[in-house]
């Protein structure tokens, strides 16, 4: 995994949405492949899908480390990988969640609450000298939120990494995007 912020202006990131058979070791197979071939990952999120036999892995890859085409083709060679969608950021909906604990004196608390409300975030927990907030949004939205919180001092934070799905074009039927059978690239 690379430490660079993937969402900066000149970043070379691309999102792969990888449908895999929901079997033991599949995440290890995917991440081992990336490590072994020297492909960088910015973030990776995995969870079961609506279909119990499949999981979806959303990987934000670093195109500076290898051509996208090689990454997807090598991924396809994994027997457990059923389908890969390359999600061009311009044609997909992207979301990320952040949780952050921020230093807050009693006076600052109100400012942080206000700031969080402006971003449409949530207050999750309030302590004596800190608050924990969360926000889900587009990665750039989250970047802005982080920057705004930074002035108070972030004690701890965790981003989930990006999850994404293709943007529905108005004519497309939703079902067509869901069938797990067969490979398409």
């Amino acid at each position: 995994m690379s430490g660079k912020n993937p969402y900066g202006q000149d970043s070379q990131h691309h999102v792969l949405s990888v449908l895999v058979q929901n079997r033991p070791g599949v995440l290890a197979r995917v991440s081992a492949l990336f490590a072994r071939r020297g492909y960088n990952i910015f973030s990776l999120a995995v969870a079961p899908t609506e279909h119990p036999d499949y999981s979806r892995i959303t990987i934000v890859v670093d195109l500076a480390s290898a051509p996208l085409e090689q990454m997807t083709k090598q991924l396809f060679k994994l027997v457990d990988v059923v389908r890969i969608s390359e999600l061009d950021p311009r044609h997909s909906v992207e979301r990320e969640l952040i949780m952050a604990t921020v230093k807050a004196t009693a006076e600052q608390r109100g400012q942080i609450v206000e700031l969080t409300n402006i971003f449409e975030g949530k207050i999750l927990s309030v302590g004596v000298d800190a608050v924990t907030v969360s926000l889900d949004g587009s990665p750039s939205n989250i970047d802005d939120f982080m920057a705004a919180l930074n002035q108070y001092g972030i004690v701890e934070s965790q981003r989930t990494g990006l999850v994404a799905l293709p943007k529905l074009d108005r004519a497309a039927s939703a079902g067509a995007a869901k069938s797990p059978k067969g490979k398409a690239s």
Binding site: V20, Q21, F76, L78, V79, D80, V81, V82, R83, P180, K181, G182, K183
Partner: peptide, 14 residues
């Protein structure tokens, strides 16, 4: 298992 069952068990291998 039949050939078809093997193929069905490997949807990612074609």
């Amino acid at each position: 298992p039949s050939d078809d069952e093997v193929l069905d068990s490997l949807p990612g291998y074609r």
